[in-house]
Deep mutational scan, measured.
Amino acid sequence: MLSDEDFKAVFGMTRSAFANLPLWKQQNLKKEKGLF
């Protein structure tokens, strides 16, 4: 599990902003970052 700081560094957004994205968009971002 990423820390909040690492999460923001990897995804360029906060966890709450990420959580507001549609599920497909979350999955695409995870795949792009190799976290899926």
Rank of each mutant, 00 (worst) to 15 (best):
K25Q: 14
W24I: 07
E32H: 08
R15G: 03
F11M: 09
W24C: 09
A9N: 12
K25V: 14
F36W: 13
T14I: 04
F18W: 05
F18M: 03
F18N: 00
K8W: 14
N20Q: 15
K8P: 03
G12I: 00
L23P: 11
A17M: 10
Q27F: 11
G12N: 05
N28Y: 14
F36I: 13
F18H: 01
M1L: 13
T14G: 06
E32L: 10
L2M: 13
L35T: 08
K8T: 09
A17V: 09
Q27R: 13
K33V: 11
K31Y: 11
W24F: 06
A17E: 15
E5D: 11
E5T: 06
K30A: 14
Q26T: 00
K25R: 09
L29K: 02
N20E: 15
L21N: 01
A9H: 11
N28I: 14
F7D: 00
K25W: 08
N20C: 10
F36D: 13
G12E: 04
P22W: 02
N28W: 15
L21Y: 04
Q26V: 01
L35A: 05
N20K: 15
N20D: 14
Q26F: 01
W24Y: 08
S3H: 04
D6E: 14
F18I: 02
K31V: 11
S3A: 06
A19S: 10
K30H: 09
L21V: 01
G12H: 04
N28L: 15
F36M: 14
S3V: 04
F36G: 13
V10I: 15
P22D: 05
Q26H: 01
N28P: 01
A19I: 09
T14F: 02
A17H: 07
K8S: 07
E32W: 06
G12M: 02
D4K: 02
D4W: 05
L35N: 09
F7G: 00
F11T: 04
D6G: 08
D4T: 03
D6H: 09
K8R: 10
A9F: 12
E32K: 09
L35R: 10
R15I: 06
L35G: 10
L21F: 03
F18K: 00
P22T: 03
L23T: 08
T14M: 03
Q27M: 11
S16A: 14
P22K: 01
W24L: 07
W24A: 06
R15F: 04
F18V: 02
K33T: 07
A17W: 03
